[in-house]
Computed example of a mutant assay.
Amino acid sequence: MKHILPLLAITLLFSCQNTAQVNKKQQAIINAEPVEVPLKNGKAHAYFASGCFWCVEAIYESVKGVDESISGYAGGHTKNPTYESSNTGRTGHAEAVEIIYDPKVVSFKTLVDVYFASQNVTQVNGQGPDRGSQYRSIIFYQNDEQKQIILKKKEDLAKQLNAKIAAEVYPFQKFWVAEDYHQNYEKLHPNHPYIKNVSIPRLNRFKANFPKEFLKENH
């Protein structure tokens, strides 16, 4: 929700049943074979959804070895999703980020650790104040090795917390780049109320608790 909703609207939002993940088209995406993105100039690509992409983009850009973090949409069954269409919850897409990284500097496993360390791992269909299927947590794999890394991390966390881990695990299919005005949003709009009250505190909590050896200095 990157704005404040009246209490009635929030009540309605929680009471509406979300069918984005249970229709046949969406199920076909979940059951598909993963698409593997080849290295380009020695750089690899990874894809994560964890609530507002403004927040997640900034978190990953604080990690050593990450060259770029791009906001977009992934995980749904419609083509050419937009911010407006994904917000309906009917496209199956979630706000996601594409991480372009140097696998010689940072491993996929570490990026998965960043993912789970930067969110409320038990929150279903949202993160913080952002609620709805478009804000749900999804972690995408491109091959079986990545899938096993993700599943092992989920299993370990579930045992550690004695709780169900909310993140869905999807085979990667396609990433749709979001509108230009969403890119680098936290960096370009530091005084936006949502950035000041949600994004920056989330980034700071992550940085305070994640091993410093993996984080860029003065970022």
Rank of each mutant, 00 (worst) to 15 (best):
I150L: 07
D130I: 03
S137L: 08
E155Y: 13
N143E: 11
S137Q: 13
K153T: 06
G128E: 06
N125A: 13
P129T: 04
Y141P: 09
I139T: 00
D130K: 06
K153S: 09
K147F: 10
E155R: 14
N125F: 12
S133N: 14
L151S: 06
I138E: 01
R136L: 10
E145P: 00
G128L: 06
P129R: 06
Q127L: 06
I149P: 02
Q142A: 12
L151I: 10
E155M: 11
Q148R: 10
K154M: 07
Y141I: 08
V124H: 04
I138Y: 01
R131N: 11
E155A: 15
K152L: 10
Q142M: 12
K153P: 01
D130S: 07
I138S: 02
K154R: 14
D144Y: 06
G126D: 04
S133K: 13
I150Q: 00
E155F: 15
K154Y: 04
Q142P: 11
S137I: 10
E155Q: 15
Q146I: 00
D144E: 14
Q127C: 05
V124C: 08
D130G: 04
G128F: 08
G132D: 00
R136H: 09
D144L: 05
G126L: 04
S137P: 09
I139Y: 01
E145W: 01
E145N: 10
I139H: 00
I139A: 02
G126M: 04
N143Q: 07
Q134Y: 11
I138R: 00
N125I: 09
E145D: 14
L151R: 03
S133W: 14
R136C: 06
Y135F: 07
D144A: 10
L151E: 04
D130C: 05
Q148K: 14
D130V: 04
S137R: 07
Q142C: 13
I139E: 03
S137K: 15
G126I: 00
F140M: 08
E145T: 11
K147S: 05
E145F: 09
S137C: 09
Q146G: 03
K152E: 13
N125K: 13
Y141H: 15
E145I: 12
Q148I: 14
V124E: 05
D130R: 09
Q134H: 15
D130E: 07
V124K: 10
R131M: 11
Y135D: 05
K154A: 00
I138W: 00
Q134M: 13
I149R: 03
Y135K: 05
I138P: 01
F140P: 04
K153L: 01
Q134S: 10
K153G: 01
E155C: 09
K152C: 09
D144Q: 14
I150S: 01
S137V: 07
G128C: 13
Y141K: 06
G128M: 10
R131K: 13
N125Q: 12
E145L: 11
Q148C: 06
Q148V: 11
Q127T: 07
Q146P: 12
I150N: 01
Q142I: 04
Y135V: 07
L151N: 03
Q146H: 12
Q146A: 05
Y141F: 15
E145K: 10
Q148M: 15
N125D: 14
Q142Y: 11
I149T: 06
V124N: 13
K154S: 00
E145S: 12
